[in-house]
């Protein structure tokens, strides 16, 4: 039996909003450690990895590991039926072919129950090397979202370069070009507004903005986003997931293969 209860059901709604347009179908791997998912987009250019730790749930029971394969747009449609303040409980019997979602409104006697069909998916699990990166940048997530959205008006790709204590995002296209330069800040009063840059070596790499704009749909999950870059390896865009009390619940990490000069 698998059962996971989340009083702040809105977190699960936000997670689905952040992945459903990138990945159609994926499997949740549920173990005593928590729920995790890894999936590539259909063109195999990007990869998303989600982790929700067991102790972040308000109740978590997983008698034996289960893989819950599902259509994410179906799951997202069902989660739209839950209110932002609802408690969400996921339930799956050991050998069932569906998952049950129970939504309970706060301070009300209303409970709704939905079922989503499970699928057997041939998902390939990719090994992600745990390597240090040349550049790590932490910045406000809304700022990253805005830069990606603005630069997509100019071109299809963004060139990210980092030197000393600044990071530069640049795009060019038929209409002209645009650049956004961010310098490291020291705003200790408001850590969520700060930009911090840690650089081992300067870097310059280009990425498709279409995917970065998909990743930015995770913005409501976290006030800060972390970008990790190294020469000729995929970019990592990470949003940590915290609950209202600020406790660490897990993360969404997106990996994006670079564009290379032919």
């Amino acid at each position: 039996m698998f059962e996971a209860k989340l009083i702040q059901g809105a977190i699960l709604k936000k997670i689905l909003d952040a992945i459903k347009d990138l990945v159609n179908e994926a499997s949740w791997d549920c173990s005593s450690q928590g729920m995790s998912l890894q999936a590539m987009d259909t063109s195999h250019v990007s990869l998303v990895a989600v982790q929700m730790k067991a102790d972040g749930f308000d109740k978590y029971r997983c008698d034996r590991s289960v893989t819950l394969g599902m259509n994410l747009s179906s799951l997202s449609k069902i989660l739209k039926c839950a209110g932002n303040d609802d408690t969400i409980t996921l339930k799956a019997p050991d050998d069932g072919d569906k998952i049950t979602l129970v939504f309970e409104a706060k301070n009300e006697s209303e409970t709704s129950e939905y079922e989503v069909k499970l699928m057997n998916l041939d998902s390939e699990y990719l090994g992600i090397p745990d390597t240090p990166y040349s550049v790590n940048v932490k910045m406000p997530s809304h700022k990253f979202q805005r830069i990606c959205r603005d630069l997509q008006q100019i071109g299809d790709a963004v060139t990210i370069s980092c030197a000393k204590d600044s990071i530069r995002f640049a795009a060019k296209g038929d209409l002209g070009s645009g650049t956004v330069n961010l310098c490291q800040t020291a705003s200790a009063d408001k850590p969520e507004d700060s930009v911090s840059i840690s650089m081992q070596e300067p870097i310059i790499q280009s990425f498709a903005l279409k995917y970065l704009n998909h990743f930015a749909k995770a913005t409501p999950l976290s006030p800060q986003v972390s970008l990790s870059l190294s020469p000729d390896v995929p970019l990592v865009v990470e949003y940590s997931i915290t609950d209202d009390d600020g406790s660490d619940f897990g993360y969404i990490r997106y990996y994006l293969a670079p564009k290379i000069d032919e």
Binding site: V45, E124, A257
Partner: peptide, 13 residues
């Protein structure tokens, strides 16, 4: 510019 795929960097575990 050409787009690389993620599978050219990460291999099946």
């Amino acid at each position: 510019m050409s787009q690389k795929t993620i599978t050219s960097f990460f291999k099946p575990a």
